[in-house]
Each structure stands twice: as C-alpha cells, then as structure tokens.
Amino acid sequence: MKMTLNINRKEHEVDIKGHETLLEVLRDQLGMTGTKTSCNESECGACTVIIGKKATLSCITLVANVAGEEVTTIEGLAKGEELHPVQQAFLDNGAAQCGFCIPGMIMSCTALLNNNPNPTQEEMEYALDGNICRCTGYLKIFEAIRDAGGRLSEMEAPKESTFYRHTPETVSSKS
C-alpha cells in the first residue's frame, strides 16, 4: 500500500506492506543511512530518531504507525552546509570517536535540548541512558550537550522556527 511519510519536513511517498520498521524504510527505501542499524532490539540507541518531539527507536517502530507524524532524522538537522548547533558542538568538543553511535546520540541530545536548553547533569544522563557508546566514556558528549545548549540559548531566532519549521514538500522514494 502507498503511504506518505513526513520526514525532515518533506513528504515522501513509500510503498509498504505493513510489516516494515521505520528503520528499514529509512535506510532501504529512502536511502537515509545516517540512522544506524545495530542491535535491532531496542537496546543500543543507534537507530534513534525524533518523532514529534520525542526521541524514539526506529528499529521497534512500525512505519505504518507513524503516518501523519513528523519524523526527524540526523539528515534533517543541518541546513545545507551549516551544521545544527548540536552537531557543531559534538565536532568542536571531540565528542565522537568511531562515530557509529553518534547519529542516535545527537538525536537524543537534540530532543532534550529542544525542550530544555540548560539541562542538569542528571537530566542529561536521563535523556542519554538509552544511547550506548563504547568509545568516548560520555564525558565529551556531556560537554558537547552543555556547549550546544549554550549555543541554542544564544540564538536570536527561536530554535523551533529555525530548524523544525514544517514546510511540506513531496519527494518520491526510490522504490
């Protein structure tokens, strides 16, 4: 069946059977491979995307279940060549090593900072306890969140209107 997905402020028509996960459709049909496949059983956080305003695991989300909802993936953060403040903060603070977990980590951080630009250490740990990183030890990641929170707070325009304005635009999928 045909369905329309709203991903990164664009509408994508996809052809699904009903049993595909959002992760499978993002990667295999839409070519959005920034969202990573890892454990595939909701433990590692590598597949994290934002649905509505919440960090969500795409490996255990049926794509049919997100019809009409706004999905944001790692590909939807930057504006052209300009990185999202969270991405830039990860880069500037050396918060990535192998990088495999980082798209999911950035999505969780972005969801946190969209609601709370000045999180406490406890709030950061709460928001990131579902994203496993085997390289960094998390300290640089926490530094990056604090840095990004500061950048978002300093921005003149409200962050939602800058990065999450909904301007539908239809795009056909590869399939």
Partner: peptide, 9 residues
Amino acid sequence: ISTNPIRNM
C-alpha cells in the same frame, strides 16, 4: 524503567 527512548514509547 528501562531507557529514555523506551520511556518515550
């Protein structure tokens, strides 16, 4: 309970 994305779902 579990982890943040799970608590969101």
